[in-house]
Simulated assay, not measured.
Amino acid sequence: MQPMLATPGALPDGPEWVFEVKWDGMRLLADVADGRVRLASRTERDVTASFPELAELTRLAPDVLLDGEVVLLEGGVPSFPALLERLHGPALPRTVQARPVTYMVFDVLRLYGVPLLDRPFEERRATLERLDLAAVPALSLSPTYSDGRALFEATLERGMEGVVAKRRDGVYRPGRRGPGWTKVTHRQTQVCVVGGWRPERAGPGRIGSLLLGVPDAAGLRFAGRVGSGLAGETTQRVLRDRLVEAEQPPFAERLPRPDGAGAHWCEPQTVVEVAHTGWTEGGRLRQPVFRGVRDDLDPDHVRQEA
C-alpha cells in the first residue's frame, strides 16, 4: 500500500479542519503482523533494516498498520540530511544509539485485522490515541492543533517545514492526493533524477555539480544543475557509489553548452532532493541547493511539484 498524499494549497480555515506539523522526514507505513514489523517507504520499498529502533512497534498490538514520518532530531528540529545518511549504509548499533530516530505517527489504517481506511480521520485519530504509544521509546504521537495560522507562524519561527491541514471527516485514500489533506510549506523542494555531473575544477574526480531532470511525457526534461551542498565527503562518496556512467545524455533535449560542457553522463536511476526558490519560465530550478540522495524513491515516481 502507498500512503495518502497531501495536496499543496492555501491554508484552510474552519472547525472542520485540524492541523499538524509537516515533519521534515521520511514517510513510512509501519505494518505489524505475526510478531514482526515491516517499514515501507512512499514507493513501497522495504527500509526496515535502516531503522532497527522501530522493531519495538510490535508492543503496540499484534496486528496494526500505522502511517507516520520518521525524523532525526538535531537541537529539537528535524534534520533531513542527517536522516538520509541512515539510508546509505548499515544501521550500526553505535550509530543507532548515538543518533536514534523518532517515528512521528499520525494515523492508524488497520487494527486487529479491521481496515479503518473508510472511517473519518477524527475516528481514526481517536483509535490511534487509545493505543499504548508510550510502550515504544522511539514512537511519538504527532500533535494536532485547532489554530492553523498560529501553527504555521510557529513552524516558520523554528525553521520547520510547514503545516498539514486535515479534514475531520476525511477518509484515507492510499496513494492519492485529495481535498482532505492540504500541505502548506515555508520552502520549496523538488525530487529530481540525476542525468549527469560536472567535475570540480579544483578537485580531480570530485563532483562539482549535478545535472538534474524531471520526467514528463517527452522523457527526462532538463531542470537545471545544482552545485551548492555537494562539498561534504559523505555526499561525494554516496554519489560516486550510485552514479552509473552512460555513453549518451539521458535528457530529452540538447542541453545548453554552459550546462553540458565537460559533463559526465550517467544512467537516470539516482533520485536526489533539492531545495529551491521557484521555477524560471524556461522550466529551470531557481537557486537549487542539494539536500540528499533519496534512496527511498524510484525515478518512476518523480514528478514536478506544484
Rank of each mutant, 00 (worst) to 15 (best):
G282K: 00
R36F: 02
D300Y: 00
G205F: 02
R124K: 12
G195Q: 04
P8I: 00
A98E: 08
K183F: 05
L109H: 04
R240C: 13
V105H: 01
G227M: 04
V64D: 10
P268A: 03
L11G: 03
A82Q: 12
P215Q: 04
V136W: 04
H264L: 09
F290A: 02
D300L: 10
G159P: 04
H301Q: 14
S209H: 04
Y103E: 14
V226M: 07
G148F: 07
R303V: 12
D147G: 06
D132Y: 06
F80W: 07
A165P: 04
R125L: 09
E85S: 13
L212W: 04
P204E: 14
V37Y: 04
V164D: 04
T277S: 11
T127Y: 08
A165H: 10
I207Q: 08
I207D: 05
G229C: 09
E123L: 14
G205R: 01
H276N: 01
D295F: 00
H276W: 02
V77A: 14
D24S: 05
R291Q: 13
K166P: 00
G232N: 12
G162N: 11
A306S: 15
V18F: 05
D169G: 09
T144L: 15
R221H: 06
D118H: 07
D107Q: 00
G68A: 10
F106E: 12
R206L: 07
E85C: 06
L5F: 07
E281D: 15
P288E: 02
G75D: 06
D259V: 00
P204A: 15
Q287R: 09
A306H: 13
Q236F: 02
R110V: 00
V271A: 01
R198N: 11
G282S: 10
V164A: 05
T185E: 13
L39V: 05
G224K: 06
E200Q: 12
H186K: 11
Q236I: 03
T235R: 05
W23S: 15
G162Y: 05
L297W: 00
G260P: 08
G89L: 13
G113C: 05
G159Q: 11
R119P: 05
V302M: 11
A275L: 08
S228T: 13
T127F: 06
A218L: 08
R130F: 03
L54P: 01
D46E: 15
E247A: 13
I207T: 03
L212A: 11
L128G: 01
P78K: 10
T185Q: 09
A61T: 07
H264M: 10
V191N: 11
A150W: 03
L66K: 11
R149Q: 13
E157M: 01
E129F: 02
V114H: 14
R130A: 14
L73Q: 10
P115E: 04
P268G: 03
A30P: 12
F152W: 09
P249G: 02
A252D: 11
P288A: 11
D295M: 10
E123W: 07
L230D: 04
Q248G: 09
P256A: 07
R124T: 06
P268K: 03
L243I: 02
W23E: 13
V194Y: 03
W265L: 10
R124G: 07
E253Y: 02
G170T: 14
G203C: 05
R286D: 08
P78W: 02
E273I: 06
Q97I: 03
T235M: 12
G203A: 15
A138F: 09
E85L: 14
D298S: 09
E56A: 15
